[in-house]
C-alpha cells in the first residue's frame, strides 16, 4: 500500500502517481488529506485499489477506467463523471450530477445524492442508498439508476433507454418519463446491483420508471416544424 499525502504533494502529485502505473508496480493506494480538492483520482487507466480518507471536491474519479475507488467521506459535484469502467463507492453524500455522462462501471453512494444524479448516463449502474434531488436521470440514455430513498421533482426528464428504480416516493416525473412494469429481468437486475453495492433493501419494493418514447421519436404530425 502506497500512501499519498495530498497536503504535501497536491492534486497533481497524487494523480501523477496514479497515472504512472507499469507492470508489477504498486496497485494499492491510500490518499490522505484530500481537503475537498477537485479532480482527485481522475483519469485512472489501470486496475488499482484507491482509498480516499476524507471529503473530496468536484469530479472525483472522473473518466475512471478499471480502478476501484473508495471515498471515506462526502463527494462534491460530478463524482465519477464520464466513468468508463471500474467501481466508485462513496460512504457519505454526494453533490449534484453524480455519475454524469458515465459510460460504464458501477457507482455506489451510501448516503443521499443531490440534484441531477445520473444526468445523461450512458451505461453506468448507480445505486443510491438514500434519496436523490431534482432532475435526476435527466436525458439518461442507458444503464440503471437504483434509488433506495425518494426522488425529487422532474425525475427522468427527457429520458432515453435507461431504467430508473425507486423504492420511496417520487415527487414528480419529468417530461416523457412514465412508470413501467417491473418484469423478472428487472427484479433480477435490482437484486444483483443491491447485492454488489452492499446496501440492504428488498428488491421487490422498487418501482420502475422509463421513457414513454414520445419525445425522442419523430412524429409525422410534427413534420411541418422541420
Amino acid at each position: 500500500m502506497a500512501i499519498l499525502n495530498l497536503k504535501k504533494i497536491g492534486v497533481s502529485g497524487v494523480n501523477s502517481a496514479l497515472h504512472k502505473i507499469v507492470e508489477n508496480s504498486e496497485k494499492d493506494f491510500e490518499i490522505r488529506n484530500p481537503q475537498g480538492q477537485h479532480s482527485i483520482a481522475c483519469g485512472i487507466n489501470a486496475p488499482l485499489n484507491v482509498e480516499i480518507k476524507g471529503h473530496v471536491g468536484f469530479y472525483c474519479g472522473g473518466m475512471n477506467k478499471y480502478a476501484k475507488i473508495l471515498i471515506h467521506g462526502h463527494a462534491g459535484v460530478g463524482v465519477g463523471e464520464n466513468m468508463m469502467s471500474g467501481y466508485i463507492h462513496v460512504k457519505g453524500d454526494t453533490s449534484e450530477s453524480a455519475g454524469a455522462t458515465a459510460h460504464g462501471g458501477f457507482l455506489v453512494i451510501e448516503g443521499n445524492a443531490s440534484s441531477r444524479c445520473g444526468i445523461s448516463m450512458k451505461g453506468v449502474d448507480i445505486v443510491v442508498g438514500g434519496s436523490v434531488g431534482h432532475m435526476s436521470g435527466f436525458m439518461a440514455q442507458s444503464g440503471n439508476l437504483v434509488i433506495c430513498g425518494d426522488a425529487k421533482d422532474a425525475l427522468g426528464d427527457s429520458i432515453y433507454e435507461a431504467n430508473i428504480f425507486v423504492r420511496g416516493e417520487v415527487s414528480e416525473l419529468g417530461a416523457d418519463c412514465i412508470e413501467k412494469e417491473v418484469r423478472p429481468e428487472h427484479s433480477a437486475k435490482i437484486s444483483k446491483l443491491l447485492k454488489s453495492s452492499g446496501i440492504n433493501a428488498n428488491p421487490t419494493d422498487f418501482r420502475r420508471y422509463g421513457s414513454a418514447r414520445q419525445l425522442y421519436n419523430f412524429d409525422v404530425d410534427n413534420f411541418e416544424s422541420y
Partner: peptide, 22 residues
Amino acid sequence: TEFRAIAKLPGAENAEIWEPEP
C-alpha cells in the same frame, strides 16, 4: 460555494455537512 473553502477550518472533517436545498 465549494467544500474546499470549509476544509481548512478546525473540525471540518467531522462537521455535519450538507448541500442547501433549492
